[in-house]
């Protein structure tokens, strides 16, 4: 009986023993608590502007650019966006932008704002490329900027930051079932590890249920950008916003199903950052109505 595989179930979540059981059952790995203890606080910046989209959901590019500049300054602590970028990347880097390609994609206006902001900072146009795709895309880059759109996902609970690199694995469908908790391992592939300089989540018009297929009933104008250098912390903040929106929508607790264990696994098993909101410093700027944080 000792050799029987431990199966992760609903009961583990209720008991609060998810941490260790994810490691030994779903992932077949030990749960290195030490990683979490060595870390400091992660900073996540949320910038919102109620005019970022109009009533028809058209995005105002100029406002998005301002929001991006503000986010960059706050995340890095530098005095302007140029200095902020140059603290994250070098002009000699080949910088890959990784937006969500389709199914609630990242708004073009967000991608364009990042491109133009990088060029304003002195990064040559030919050093900026779109890196969404297979395993070859990140291999050609020395720096990556993750630009996912915020959305719930019916297979993994959330399908935003960690899922943004799924195509880099070369076998995305292998992460659809019980291995969905292992999304963090993609970020540790040799040609991906350490390259991500900034995570900027497009939270202008998020989706809080039924993703990745678009369902307009569950989309709302949050009009925000979420930024940070810790991918797990940024994911955890996006997750919190989605969970709070669901609660508001139904007027009662409406937990994500399945639970997004890939987020905690990215922290505790893969050491990519912190998933514990108590260890995340969230700074908010701009429009604060229905902040959900």
């Amino acid at each position: 009986m000792k050799n029987e595989k431990y199966v992760l179930t609903r009961r583990d979540f209720i008991r609060g023993t998810i941490g260790t059981t994810v490691g030994v059952s779903v992932l077949g790995l030990k749960w290195p608590d030490a990683i979490a203890k060595e870390r400091g606080t992660s900073l996540v910046t949320v910038v919102r502007n109620k005019n970022a989209m109009d009533s028809s959901k058209n995005v105002d590019s100029a406002i998005v650019k301002k929001m991006l500049d503000e986010a960059l300054v706050k995340v890095t602590g530098r005095k302007n966006s140029k200095d902020a970028w140059l603290s994250l990347v070098k002009p000699t880097d080949m910088i890959g932008l990784v937006p969500t390609g389709h199914l609630n994609p990242t708004h073009d206006e967000v991608v364009d704002a990042v491109k133009s902001s990088l060029m304003d900072a002195g990064i040559p146009r030919d050093r900026i490329t779109l890196a969404q795709g297979g395993a070859d895309a990140p291999k050609e880059c020395t720096a990556l900027i993750a630009l996912p759109a915020l959305k719930a996902h019916w297979l993994t609970g959330i399908g935003t930051v960690l899922k943004d690199y799924i195509m880099f694995s070369g076998s995305p469908s292998s992460y659809h079932k019980s291995d969905s908790a292992k999304l963090g391992e993609i970020w540790n592939l040799p040609f991906v590890k350490g390259k991500t300089k900034l995570v900027l989540v497009d939270a202008l018009y998020p989706l809080c249920d039924k993703g990745p297929q678009p369902d307009p009933r569950y989309k709302w104008a949050y009009n925000g950008l979420i930024a940070g250098t810790d991918p797990v912390a940024v994911e955890a903040v996006g997750l919190k916003i989605i969970e709070e929106k669901r609660k508001t929508m139904r007027g009662e607790p409406w937990p994500l199903s399945p639970p997004p264990i890939c987020v905690e696994a990215a922290d505790k098993v893969y050491g990519l950052g912190t998933s514990n909101l108590a260890e995340i410093k969230i700074e908010h700027y701009g429009w604060d109505k229905d902040l959900l944080l």
């Binding site: 199966v7 992760l8 179930t9 908790a181 199903s257």
Partner: peptide, 15 residues
């Protein structure tokens, strides 16, 4: 079981 889990989470395995 994936559809079940999206409605009422039971297990990551097809138990």
């Amino acid at each position: 079981y994936l559809v079940l889990n999206s409605n009422y989470y039971l297990s990551h395995e097809n138990i």
